[in-house]
Design a protein around this nucleic acid. Structure first.
Lengths: 343, 343
DNA sequence: TTGTAGGCGTTATCAC
DNA sequence: GTGATAACGCCTACAA
């Protein structure tokens, strides 16, 4: 069955397509009554305009896309809400697009930009390692949100909003050291990670060094490659290995909260307790860290502020007020039950 | 800067647009060498076809859309992975589309069907209460996955895959009763909920009745409207109220795992323990129920099977092997540390 | 206020 | 094997 088109509606109403188009798009130059009549016919016949045709014709549409990389992270839920609210407040419309773990987000963005005539793009999550050449194919403004960039990128070529992963990680490890811990294990990303995983690991190393503690390689664990990264399951499996290794430690810093949850479970299963036997700390500030038992010490990222600032910068970019911008927010060390001073 | 089009490429290659189109779309009627040449030019110039134009022209595209209602639920992550794998295995492409809590998923689906020339649709999550008239506007096959439908719907008008929320809920409460609990509180959806919330509540009522236990209205709590539904925060807030009410109970059944986690936290904060003072049970089988401390008794939905069957039915629908189908999977009662026999 | 016609970028149809 | 050309469904000058 052929779908009904704007021409059919026009014929049914005995008017031209222009008039129907005006009715649909709330154009001013149309009398109230013809408009009402047309809308009625449209409703009766369940006419729905074809978006492909609209996008094709439209030269510019006021829409922003948010691209999320990888499996949905609970961390992003709140951010997305803020994005949506802020974008709507600017009278723009908003597209949420998932990007597969093994897809190239820039390619997706380039396609989407053409398809939907985007005005701007927000990249959320994932690592970011693309050639300048590729980035240049993006002709609309974009902002990297919550994506740690290693320093080799030329900051004048992109915009970003995030926390300082290096500094915040340092803050956490510094806190643990100050609590008297001298043997602090870490669960971090794989060693070839170039993004937040690496930055957080660097912060750990620096903090140890500043406290004149040796870096013990046997206390440095990477997430398992064959398990979903940053997941509870991964934290659990890695911690089991750490415990089995027999290497002594008194505190464990996991570079994400989910890893920390898994770590706690592994510790409980070994008959030990948190924080009496081992202090455990996470990173991100997920809700679960508050609700877990014991509640988990973490670094809380100010997600609302990050999201709001992301949109602010994006619109400044769109309005050509700036050519690029970088904003880092301070994160908050949330000291909770899972860490304690070393006895 | 105007975007480069297929015509530009054709000119650059000194061929017709048809030939370029053939190269892009892997058509057979084209010599290997011209194809290679064209692809090279395309690559050099970073030409990306405009999807809107393609969709507009294409009569049919082999693509399936999965629509997710509401805030992303960790429950869905695994399902989405399976959907993607299965859909790709059938050589179809796959679109993941989020639907806002206050958007009408059917309307989104209708638009998307036209825009992308969909072959089929999967609805995931949310309640489902739409007129037959509206459903009829969907001209492609669709399957409701994990969406409890109340009986008033004519089952011959749609297809679905899920667990029997009523029965599984009954199973849980029956188990609690068998453990000697006689005062079982419940945190359920709001009373006007027509979907899984209602079904799970009905199961609770029936189990009490079958055990000849009175239904105590003072132990029936609905989630708070002003807090994100089915969230830990909601479970926490409601349980605090329940505890403050002073009404006696020995077990608490929360209709989702996240609610159960929040409930545990509230109980801990009141100085009581789980399960010694109160048994707590959830529903869904999220990872966190295993990793929580204590681990939480729950009903584990077989997400992989549900997802696989959803796709199987969808393709049977597409291939006109069937006109509709309903499949319910048994869920598994996972007895863990958070529940115990009443002393 | 309303209608006609051209074009957005692509693919399908048909000739060559 | 290749190339013109007509749609696809809509929007928007421009004309009436």
């Amino acid at each position: 069955m052929a779908s009904i088109t704007i021409i059919d509606i026009a014929k049914m109403c005995g008017v031209g397509v222009t008039t129907v188009s005006r009715a649909i798009n709330n154009h001013p130059d149309i009398s109230e009554e013809t408009k009402a009549m047309i809308m009625q016919v449209i409703k009766d016949n369940h006419y729905v305009p074809n978006n492909s045709a609209r996008n094709l014709k439209r030269s510019a549409s006021k829409t922003i896309a948010v691209l999320i990389k990888g499996i949905t992270n609970p961390f992003f839920n709140r951010m997305i809400q803020v994005f949506e609210k802020e974008i709507q407040r600017k009278k723009y419309s908003f597209i949420l697009q998932h990007v597969d773990e093994n897809q190239d987000e820039i390619e997706v963005a380039i396609e989407l930009e053409k398809e939907k005539r985007l005005k701007g793009i927000v990249f959320l999550g994932g690592n970011f390692s693309h050639s300048k050449e590729k980035l240049d194919q993006l002709t609309v403004p974009f902002v990297l949100s919550t994506i740690g960039m290693t320093p080799e990128y030329d900051p004048s070529e992109y915009s970003s909003v995030s926390v300082d992963d290096y500094k915040e990680s340092y803050k956490m490890v510094d806190y643990l050291c100050n609590q008297g811990h001298r043997k602090i294990a870490i669960i971090t990303a794989s060693m070839d990670d170039v993004s937040i995983g690496k930055l957080r690991y660097e912060g750990y190393k620096q903090a140890l060094e500043d406290h004149e503690l040796p870096l013990n390689e046997k206390l440095v664990y990477s997430m398992k490659e064959n398990i979903e990264s940053y997941s509870m399951e991964n934290g659990y499996a890695v911690t089991k290995e750490l415990l089995d290794s027999g290497e002594e430690f008194t505190a464990l810093f996991a570079v994400s909260d989910s890893l920390a949850v898994g770590a706690c479970k592994a510790i409980f299963e070994s008959g030990k307790s948190v924080p009496d036997d081992y202090s455990v700390a996470g990173f991100d500030g997920l809700d679960i860290t508050y609700y877990y038992n014991p509640s988990i010490t973490t670094i809380r990222q100010p997600v609302e502020e990050i999201a709001e600032e992301t949109i602010r910068i994006l619109f400044d970019l769109i309005n050509k007020k700036i050519t690029h911008a970088h904003k880092t927010f301070p994160a908050e060390l949330m000291i909770r039950e899972s860490t304690t001073a070393r006895k």
